[in-house]
Computed example of a mutant assay.
Amino acid sequence: MYIATNKETCDKIREVLAAQADKPQNIRVFIAGMACSGPSFGLGLDNINDEDVTEIVEGVNFVLEKSVFDSVGEIKVEWVGNGYSVQPVNVQPSACGSCSSCG
């Protein structure tokens, strides 16, 4: 697995982990939903399962289901000032317009 991230992002995640010391200390990257432009991703605290792949970056243990990694590949996690941006590295969202909910 490969997580593209930076020190600032990992610093912010470590702050969350420190405040949630009673919770699992792994950051799960997961598919939070699907839209016409592809999957949207989220982050959460979670345990490691047998079906997972992991990578430690700057002391942060990222976890992702192997099947998700196999379908989307590398993931970029970045602190963007008011939250985290989580996106596949090599997949650009397609232009919408194929569904009625996009206007």
Rank of each mutant, 00 (worst) to 15 (best):
M1D: 01
Y2I: 09
I3G: 03
A4R: 12
A4D: 12
T5L: 07
N6P: 02
N6F: 01
I13V: 04
I13H: 01
R14N: 04
R14L: 06
E15S: 03
V16P: 00
V16A: 03
V16W: 03
L17S: 00
L17N: 00
A18V: 01
A18H: 00
A18G: 00
A18R: 06
A19M: 01
A19F: 01
Q20T: 03
Q20I: 00
A21P: 00
D22P: 00
K23M: 14
P24L: 02
Q25D: 08
Q25M: 10
N26K: 10
N26P: 03
I27N: 02
V29E: 02
V29L: 06
F30D: 02
I31C: 10
I31G: 01
I31Y: 02
A32E: 12
G33C: 06
G33R: 06
M34I: 14
M34E: 12
M34C: 11
A35H: 08
A35Q: 10
C36G: 11
S37I: 13
S37A: 14
P39S: 10
P39R: 11
S40M: 14
F41P: 07
F41M: 12
F41C: 08
F41D: 08
G42L: 07
L43F: 06
L43C: 08
L43I: 07
G44S: 14
G44T: 14
G44N: 11
L45T: 09
L45Q: 08
I48S: 09
N49P: 00
N49V: 10
D50E: 15
D50W: 04
D50Q: 13
E51Y: 05
E51C: 07
D52G: 06
D52Q: 05
D52H: 05
T54D: 10
T54I: 13
E55I: 11
I56M: 12
V57R: 14
V57F: 02
E58W: 12
E58D: 15
E58P: 01
E58M: 07
G59F: 05
G59P: 05
G59R: 06
V60A: 04
V60W: 02
N61G: 00
N61F: 00
F62G: 05
V63I: 12
L64A: 03
L64Q: 13
L64E: 12
K66V: 00
S67L: 07
S67Y: 13
V68K: 05
V68T: 14
F69M: 05
F69P: 01
D70S: 08
D70I: 05
S71V: 04
V72C: 04
V72Q: 01
G73V: 03
G73I: 05
G73C: 04
I75D: 02
K76N: 13
E78M: 11
E78I: 07
E78R: 12
W79K: 09
W79F: 13
V80N: 11
G81E: 07
G83L: 04
Y84H: 04
S85Y: 06
S85A: 11
Q87P: 01
Q87A: 15
Q87S: 14
P88C: 10
V89E: 06
N90D: 14
P93I: 07
S94G: 15
S94A: 15
S94N: 15
A95P: 13
G97P: 14
G97Q: 11
C99R: 06
S101E: 15
S101Q: 14
C102W: 12
C102T: 13
C102V: 13
G103V: 14
